[in-house]
């Protein structure tokens, strides 16, 4: 099982100089009660972080409720946000093959340009660092130079690449990768799929097919939606539609090193119950860290 404490530490460094939780708010919330202007400011902060109107409303209501039980405002907010992000499922992922020797399989899906290929490279690197043997399936046969791009990442990470012809069948490539991984006794297969907007019915069906075909070779352990942190309210729709097409097991929230906060994942967690498992923090191979709710909440409120 992957334990990311070292990475979390690096992540904390990356997030500097963002303030420690609540420092800014503590300065604003001087008394135990909030006046209208303070509530408005809080609302604006949440909306400005792409939390969305519904989730913001429910967060503020929950916070009032906690405050009526004499919780101090900053504590109430912190508890509310952490509760909003709480999930029953584990955020851990398996990087080593299962006891019976079959490789773990992860499909990496998402809209165009979200950061799928980069995340595949980072995940491969992380797994190799943990001692796993990794196979990458170059299943984006559509976009120009997609195979070359993921090949570069495979080399950087020290993973084996299975690719096909441009325009070829992504499901077949993914299946070949699983087959090859089984033969070589590899631990992990990462399938880099083509970017697709969730509104394209054919392409969503294609994704379902990739999954079904892969499952003929080995069980699919993770289907991770790569979501750009700059995404606004459409992120919820994306998660919903991708989730309908292939049951998502988690989200990789990328580009958190920018100014966007990625608040839409709160709605994704609350409405769809899909947890964030990793965050992307840059273009380097090492810029991937496990999701940490406290750090995330800090980011939203800073």
């Amino acid at each position: 099982m992957f334990n990311g404490s070292g990475r979390l530490f690096r992540r904390r460094e990356k997030l500097e100089p963002s303030q420690k939780f609540g420092r800014r708010l503590r300065a604003i919330f001087t008394s135990g009660k909030l006046d209208q202007a303070e509530w408005d400011e809080l609302e604006a902060t949440l909306l400005g972080a792409d939390v969305g109107t519904n989730a913001t409303r429910s967060i503020l209501a929950d916070m009032r409720e906690r405050m009526s039980r004499k919780d101090e405002p900053v504590e109430a907010l912190r508890a509310t946000l952490l509760a909003a992000l709480a999930c029953e499922q584990s955020r851990d992922i398996e990087l080593r093959k299962s006891a019976d020797g079959t490789p773990r399989v992860m499909l990496i899906v998402g809209v165009n340009g979200a950061g799928k290929t980069t995340s595949v490279g980072k995940l491969a690197h992380l797994a190799v660092e943990e001692g796993a043997q990794v196979v990458i399936a170059a299943a984006d046969t559509f976009r120009a130079a997609a195979t070359e791009q993921v090949e570069t990442w495979a080399k950087r990470a020290g993973a084996q690449l299975i690719s096909g012809e441009p325009g070829g069948d992504p499901a077949a490539i993914a299946f070949d990768a699983v087959k090859s991984a089984k033969e070589s006794g590899a631990d992990l297969v990462l399938v880099d799929t083509a970017g697709r907007l969730h509104t394209k019915v054919d392409l969503m069906n294609e994704l379902g097919k990739v999954r079904r075909v892969v499952e003929k070779g080995a069980a699919v352990d993770e289907i991770l939606l790569v979501l750009d942190a700059t995404t606004g309210q459409n992120g919820l729709t994306q998660a919903k539609v991708f989730g309908d097409a292939v049951a998502l097991t988690g989200v990789i929230l990328t580009k958190l090193d920018g100014s966007a906060r990625g608040g839409i994942i709160i709605a994704i967690q609350q409405e769809l119950g899909i947890p964030v498992k990793f965050v992307g923090l840059g273009e380097g191979i090492d810029d991937l860290a496990p999701f940490d709710a406290e750090l995330f909440v800090e980011g939203i409120l800073s």
Binding site: L47, D50, T230, G235, G258, S259, R261, I264
Partner: peptide
């Protein structure tokens, strides 16, 4: 076009 509130900052 999918960008959220960060559009202005960026």
């Amino acid at each position: 076009a999918m960008i959220g509130q960060d559009a202005l900052t960026t």
